[in-house]
Structure formats: structure tokens, C-alpha cells
Amino acid sequence: MISMHLTYDAQKVYMKVLEECLKASSIEYELNGWSEVKLKGQPALSEIRTFKNKLREAGIYVIENSRHELIQRTKDTISEMILHQEDLKSPKLSTYLTEKLNYSYTYLSKIFSEHTHYSIEHFVILKKIDYAKKLLLESRLSLTQISYKLGYSSVGHLSKQFKKTTGMTPTAFYNIIQKRNRTL
């Protein structure tokens, strides 16, 4: 029996394994430093999954949680902002998010749209209209009062955005939900 004592360069081993995994998949890539891989084009989700599994077998893991957590925090901050819109003096969305989350708005926008397939601005509109619907159905507030509460410049502005987001007027929406509650 021959006994050998080994020593290794962990980073070199890691880079070699990583490059082998990347070459084994058909995905075109670019390495940015030693902890970021940029996948070129638009690889299929299944291809990405296979690639991630291959990495996992080699003990290399894709860090996803921090970004997912940031997206969740962005959504929560948006909800909080909408709920307290009345108390905030005409807040700018980008300033509000940057102050609360400590990231640049450009970075937040990029991460958000990459993972949710939706822009932050569109998400805010969806969330505001969702809240407007709730108030319309559950509170005694008039549409004018709702528009004020949600920081719209006028009731007309809210109505217009409501129609664009749902495809119908607030009154038509209200009537449908009332009828639905009696039907289902």
C-alpha cells in the first residue's frame, strides 16, 4: 500500500468544476469574478434546472434566497406605502423604496422585473387598484374619498387607472361582485 498526503487549492478546484459544469450544459455563459455566472440568451427553465442540479452534485449552490427575500421586502414596503399613503406627503416611489431598503432604485427595479416579470411601477398600480377594490367593497367610503386616500390627484385619475387595470369601471366591478356573492 502506498500512502499519499494531498494538498489542494480550493479556489482552483472550484473554478475547474464550475467551468466543467457550464461546458457540459449547452448554455452560453460569462464568468464575472468567481462567484457570479451570467447566462447568455434565454435558456429554458429546464436547462437552468439541470445546470443547477449538476452544480449541486459538485457541492456548489446557487444563492437565491437573498434576492427572493429582497423582492418580498420590496412588495411589503410597497404595501406599507400604499396603506399609509394619506400620511405621507407626496412621496416619490423611488425615494421611499431606496430609503426603506437601502438599495438603489435601479438595482431594485432590475431584480424585481427579472424575477416577477413585472415592473415595480406596474406592480404598484396593481396593488393600489387591489386596495381600491377592497375599500369599494368593504368600506363606506365614496370613490372620491378612496382616490384621496390612495393619493390620486383626482377621482377621474383613479377611475381611469381602475378601467385600465381591470377593463371595467369601478361601478361595473362593484355590481359584478355583488351579483357574484348572490350567485356562487
Binding site: T116, H117, F123, L126, K134, L137, T166, G167, M168, F173
Partner: peptide
């Protein structure tokens, strides 16, 4: 698909989700 994805992934009210194209 994109709008529905938001409803499935976020804290939005599915019961009141109505959209006409």
C-alpha cells in the same frame, strides 16, 4: 399570464381579481 403570475405570487386578493382584455 404576467398579471395572473402577480396574483399567484403576491399578497393580492384573488377573489376580487377581475380583468377584461
Amino acid at each position: 399570464l404576467k398579471i395572473n403570475f402577480q396574483y399567484l405570487e403576491s399578497n393580492l386578493n384573488i377573489e376580487n381579481f377581475i380583468y377584461r382584455t
